[in-house]
Write a protein that binds this DNA or RNA. Structure first.
Length: 959
RNA sequence: GGGCCGGUAGCUCAGUUGGUUAGAGCGCACCCCUGAUAAGGGUGAGGUCGGAGGUUCAAAUCCUCCUCGGCCCA
């Protein structure tokens, strides 16, 4: 046999063979795969495949149709897609209809910007044309985002997404509004709302952002006390402090705190020029020092003439500093007790203008003081206003900086009236600004439409909308659980829902108000005429048709006012359950949804608007459970912003790494908290991806090219593993099937918990630890060197087949593209058949119940000890590989039922025998020229062992 | 400024009702293999569990304060 020592046995070894490349090239490959899904009509195929199955409805919250997809969209949609795909894999019918929010200010703003660029005045544009432009603008971004989401591998009904601007949707939104009107939950009120004088519109809370200012004005103003139960106070001056001088012309009262302590300070000791012509001032004791400081008065120079608590001030009246103007200013202003008064800043006395503050409005309303609507939409005082209104050339918008400055008209007039005690422009605080124009906003009282939150309603079983919503929250499942508290506390504390906007691009508040009585017209026939018209002609119907057409012949159009406000876009999106889930247009959907899934900011947004809309009209939430995710930060955990330049663009990541990498990232991080993304993290995700990819590559390489395992039958895209007789398998094979079953269980649990991090981790650790480092490593010799018909080798391949079919399905919801690539590599006919890995269902595994896994866990622990014991010999270069080691293990450490030969195979060593303690020596055996094992049956290095001798003989014979 | 949430190895994450030397995967270092090869295997080094107090026989786990970060609100 000496000639054999020179023979190269490489071609007698069964090495893995596959066309599946190690390097993924995802950015190049993915678009083609997505395209094929489109071509085969994946969504319809899935609906067909899951006909009559239990449904799982994830309702998409509509992103705003404005701009490219950003990382937040990517995370959100990958999570949604993972939910839909895992539920589908479990065999449920999980349709997904993506949607977009299309109305609203940001789009209007963009369209106006385009007009400005064309030097065209918006006021010259006919409203219908303007709305048409907005519609076109939104449609453009819907298409852009749609393509970007498809590129991300998101599956859904892309041929018919829902848009809030579809006429059918607009009509249904109006119908929902009418439901509120018909049940008496809608009212027109006057309330101070956040108002932007620049955009001339009321703003929602979400449209306002706070910026820190360092140069705000602050002034102290003296109001002379006319009458008071406290005799000493008469003739003295109450001092108020404010950062908004422009509200002084609309002052109607002062507020004090009942429990706050006040002092009357005597200024007579001061030199005359420091006294402002005033003898006494009234301020809170706690703020005395701060106030005197602003007034430039040394506290040692003043005496306290009177001291008392706020409640003593009841019944005190002051006069406005501009009393000499008469009219509005001639009325005495009362001092009122306000719960909101604190001694944190100011003077402890707060000037009240019901037009321009929430606290002010409420307190004044209690005392019968009404707002006067002095400030117009553009921020200037109205034409007939006696101070700084009309033709006063100094008239400006109230947010105009010079207007409020210490040398501006307000301060100058107050100074002249002897009422201005201090004025500067150096105050630091945060102040609300419009998120679009970045200009300052103000509180301004305007007529607005509201949905009442606390009125008990018959159709809600005598409960209020708030109570109904609180009950619905109690009935909802929250993932993670902390969301419940967050939503509940917001609903508990929120005010009535302000739903009107004075803008152009939106669903109209299509209502009639009787001019004489001011009452809302509630007539179902009229309402249905309105909705029907909108459903035919879009929202233009309301603006372009005459009142008479809606009112019908029985009513005189002259008697009714058509409301021209439009709806808050939150009302639009809050109605999606009505015009999407309940709509005939998407028969695959139903309501309520099993799940809404959005970022945690939507506790105040969509989760809440949907809840209120549905509770107000249907008495329950439109969802059974709510899943919220945190926000994506940069690599250091800091918020991403364009100005900081630390944004990560998912489109770029897809180009560089591929969509499967972003998906793997999104499903690995803890979405319940804020999480990070960055180069290092993506690199780590890429490593994890490669581990999974190589596991599939190994399986594809080891498994027969033609499907011999299936006895020649072509299983194709509906294929599953070949039937196997579990009882006849070697124990290692049965153990691995048991481990696979354990993995299966972990994965099912992770799906039930929406815990995708646990899902991916279980999958990766299984691939890495159980397969690569254990099972595949042990069976490498068997796969390469045993004869093709060897029962052990066949058993191994059978188990690899099971593993393949299970793992490719498990991976499919995560690595949507790679799983498809894996599947079509093994079953190329899938492509012609129009099949896909994504049409398959959760694997059914061979039953291996009753396995004694404890024995194997002990075995693996021992295996680790053996590896550790071998290491010193390798370090000292006594041996190089474990195959050269003869190992002794303590009898007591070996689980029952393993013989020495099995142990040597499992430990991948030359031999194993029992002894007192773990010991390792170098073997004297020779190395088999084919399998490279060092065995007693090998006569000399390079010769064959018994097993290889047989196999080579067989092969030579066949050749 | 207020409410809520969070800060465990370089990275992503586990750490059940407080209880033995705080774990995993990846990365890293070193080694082996060169017949999964820009792959595979082995060993190892990394953490004062954001910081400071406190409760307790015992705290990453409970309490207080501080700090950093985030969301929402003002």
């Amino acid at each position: 046999m000496t000639e054999n020592t020179k023979r190269d046995y490489k071609d007698t070894v069964f090495l893995p063979k596959t066309d599946f490349p190690m390097k993924a090239g995802l950015p190049q490959k993915e678009p083609g795969i997505a395209e094929r899904w489109d071509e085969i009509g994946m969504y319809e195929r899935l609906r067909e495949a899951r006909t009559a199955r239990e449904k799982f409805i994830l309702h998409d919250g509509p992103p705003y149709a404005n701009g490219d997809m950003h990382i937040g969209h990517a995370l959100n949609h990958v999570l949604k897609d993972a939910v839909v795909r895992t539920q589908t894999l479990l065999g449920k019918d999980a349709p997904y209809v993506p949607g977009w929010d299309c109305h609203g200010l940001p789009i209007e703003w963009k369209v106006e910007e385009q007009y400005r660029k064309k030097k065209r005045d918006k006021k010259d544009v006919p409203p219908a044309e303007f709305r048409a432009e907005c519609r076109q603008y939104a449609a453009h971004w819907v298409e852009v985002q749609k393509e970007q989401l498809k590129r991300l591998g998101i599956g859904g009904r892309w041929d018919k997404p829902y848009l809030t601007m579809r006429p059918e949707a607009e009509a249904q939104i109006v119908r929902e509004l009418h439901k509120f009107a018909e049940t008496g939950q809608l009212y027109r009120g006057a309330k101070p709302v956040m108002w932007s004088p620049v955009e001339e519109t009321a703003l929602a809370d979400a449209e306002v952002e706070y910026h820190d200012l360092t140069d705000s004005p602050q002034i102290d103003v003296a109001f002379e006390i006319m009458e008071s139960p406290i005799a000493e106070l008469v003739g003295a001056h109450a001092v108020i402090w404010t950062t908004t001088p422009w509200t002084i012309p609309v002052n109607q009262a002062l507020a004090y705190g009942r429990d706050v302590e006040y002092e009357l300070l005597h200024l007579n000791r001061l030199p005359k020029e420091k006294r402002f012509g005033i003898s006494h001032i009234l301020v809170a004791s706690d703020l005395k020092a701060a106030t005197l400081g602003r007034l430039g008065i040394d506290a040692r120079d003043v005496l306290t003439d009177w001291q008392g608590s706020g409640s003593d001030l009841a019944g005190t009246m002051v006069r406005h500093p501009m009393q000499h103007l008469g009219g509005f200013y001639a009325t005495p202003r009362p001092l009122l007790a306000g719960d909101f008064v604190t001694t944190d800043s100011g003077t402890g006395l707060v000037h009240m203008s019901p037009d321009h503050g929430e606290d002010d409005f409420e307190l004044c309303r209690k005392h019968g003081i009404d707002p006067v609507f002095a400030v117009m939409a553009d921020g200037r005082y109205r034409d007939d206003w006696p101070w700084l209104g009309g033709d006063d050339e100094r008239r400006r918008s109230v947010i105009n900086k010079p207007f409020n400055a210490p040398d501006g008209p307000i301060c100058s007039d107050l100074r002249e009236a002897g009422a201005l005690l201090s004025a500067s422009a150096d105050y630091r605080h945060s102040y609300p600004h419009s998120w679009r124009s970045k200009a300052k906003v103000v509180y301004r009282c305007t007529p607005q439409w509201f949905i009442a939150i606390d009125e008990p309603k018959e159709h809600l079983d005598g409960k209020s909308l708030r109570e109904t919503a609180m009950q619905a929250i109690a009935d909802t499942r929250f993932i993670p659980a902390k969301g419940r508290n967050r939503l509940a506390s917001m609903v508990e504390g929120r005010p009535d829902w302000l739903i009107s906007r004075q803008r152009a691009w939106g669903v109209p508040i299509a209502l009639f108000v009787h001019r004489e009585t001011g009452k809302l017209l509630v007539d179902r026939e009229v309402n249905e005429r309105i909705a029907a018209a909108i459903s035919r002609e879009t929202v233009d119907a309301w603006h372009e048709n005459s009142a008479a057409e809606f009112l019908g012949p029985d009513r005189n159009p002259e008697e009714f006012e058509m409301v021209t406000d439009i709806l808050d876009v939150w009302f639009d999106s809050g109605s999606t359950h009505a015009f999407v889930l309940e709509s005939e247009e998407w028969p695959e959907l139903s309501s309520p949804a099993d799940l809404y899934l959005e970022g945690s900011d939507q506790h105040r947004g969509w989760f809440q608007s949907s809840l209120l809309e549905s509770c107000g009209t249907r008495g329950h939430a439109p969802y059974k459970s709510l899943l919220t995710h945190g926000f994506t930060m940069d690599a250091k955990g800091m918020k991403m912003s364009k100005s900081l330049g630390n944004t990560v663009n998912p489109l770029t990541v897809m180009e560089q790494y591929g969509a499967d990498i972003i998906r793997l990232w999104a499903l690995t991080v803890d979405y319940t908290e804020d999480h990070r993304i960055g180069e290092e993290i993506l690199k780590g995700v890429g490593d994890q991806y490669r581990k999974l990819r190589n596991t599939f590559r190994y399986l594809l390489g080891a498994l027969p090219e033609r499907d011999e395992l299936h006895n020649g039958t072509e299983k194709g895209s509906s294929g599953t593993y070949a039937p196997i007789a579990v009882g006849e398998l070697p124990e290692l094979e049965r153990y691995m099937l048991g481990e696979l079953a354990a993995l299966d269980e972990r994965l099912r649990q992770a799906v039930a918990d929406y815990d995708f991090g646990a899902y991916v981790r279980a999958l990766t650790e299984f691939a890495s630890e159980d397969l690569s480092a254990f099972y595949f490593d042990i069976r490498k010799d068997c796969l390469y060197c045993d004869g093709p018909a060897d029962p052990k080798r066949e058993a191994y391949l059978a188990v690899l087949d099971v593993l393949f079919h299970a793992l490719v399905r498990y991976a499919a919801p995560v690595l949507v593209f790679t799983a498809e690539e894996v599947w079509t590599t093994r079953y190329p006919q899938t492509v012609d058949e129009g099949g896909s890995v994504h049409l398959l269902e959760w694997p059914v595994l061979p039953d291996v119940s009753g396995m004694d896994t404890a024995r194997w866990e002990a075995l693996r622990a021992l295996r680790e000890d053996v590896m550790e014991a071998i290491e010193p010999l390798r370090r000292e270069k006594i041996i190089r590989s474990g195959l050269e080691a003869e190992v002794t293990v303590p009898e007591s450490a070996v689980p029952a039922g393993f013989d020495d030969a099995e142990l040597a195979e499992l430990f991948i060593t030359a031999s194993v025998e029992r002894g007192q303690e773990i010991a390792v020596t170098k073997t004297d055996n020779h190395k088999c020229g084919r399998c490279w094992r060092l065995l007693p049956s090998v006569p000399e290095d390079g010769a064959l062992c018994d097993r290889c001798e047989d196999v080579v003989a067989q092969l030579d014979e066949a050749a």
